[in-house]
Amino acid sequence: MTTDVNRRVLPGFALSLGYTMFYLSLLVLIPIFAGVVKASSLSFQNFWDAVSGDRAVAAYTLTVGASFVSAAIDIVIGVLVAWVLVRYQSPLKGIFDALVDLPFALPTAVAGLVYSDLYVENGWLGRFLVPLGIQGAYSRLGIVLVLTFIGFPFVVRTLQPVLENLETDIEEAAACLGANRWQTVTRVLLPAVWPATITAFALAFARALGEYGSVVFISGNMPYRTEIAPVLIVARLEEFAYGEATAIAVVLLVISLVTLFLINLLERWSKQSHA
């Protein structure tokens, strides 16, 4: 229809699409292809040894586990903050709303530096937490803390528009039909935001999987204990073990791509369930 008209009327289709494909291939697809070629040039035995060693398995488990836990925390605190931002008016609302995006804009190295400084023994937060036995810096908890920071805006920004679009009518209808507030929230509101919540979780999880900059400051990077997969890749590279590094990288890449694919499916599914 209109789009067919567009192609006859508007200029630049071939130029813009051609340039897009060219730049995408050159910058993104060829490097990824090179990685896959390098990985497939390894013998199966070498590949398997690289990705199934104890240290590699510990790194994957920690990466996926910490990403999962931090995304789950993000869902809880993100839903709460999104709800407060959408439903309550306050003069400070604008500032807090803008600050939600800070993890998008703040360089990850700065986040890692400041988080590790806050949670050490004499840090602003560590001085209260360390005496309680809570080690926020140079620990697995530290990894979860920075990943929670990194993923937070994905959850709030995914849920905010969904909560804004909820008609208060359906809540009124529920109340008129005799539901109390708790029933309205659990039976009416939560089912409506459920698809968006899953998408938000997947986005935060996917972002956390690949994170390196902030984690490297706070985790201490101890093999088997606090070493995430990207840190292990860098360690292998520094030993010039390119094959091993590539094998580990390809496994991480596949985990990320599967997550991305699932996000796309979820978005399609939630669009359908809304329609």
Binding site: G210, Y212, S256
Partner: peptide, 12 residues
Amino acid sequence: PFAVSPVVVGLF
């Protein structure tokens, strides 16, 4: 590129 770890990008 959002889904690929920056470290993996550098390695490739």
